[in-house]
Amino acid sequence: MKKGVMVYVSEMKVGTSGKVTAIKATSMIKKRLLAMGLTPGTQFKIAKVAPMGDPIELNVRGYRLSLRKSEASCLEADIVGND
């Protein structure tokens, strides 16, 4: 994936890192994403995809976070690197 391109987090491949640019979600999802530290500007890496393709695992703020693709699609990010 190309650096600097805007994508939805749900579309990112394992091993790519990104930086959150926007959150477009219902209040419940948004509040949880914010509480878990996915605020705009936060860097994260896609660490894993579950065996059946969903949910996914992110490394963010020094811990592992799991979320469904539907929840990840509420997050927009810029690609900052590939493994």
Partner: peptide, 11 residues
């Protein structure tokens, strides 16, 4: 009701 899967995978 919607439910979330946004949670920590603890060490």
């Amino acid at each position: 009701e919607e439910t979330l899967f946004i949670m920590e995978l603890p060490p």
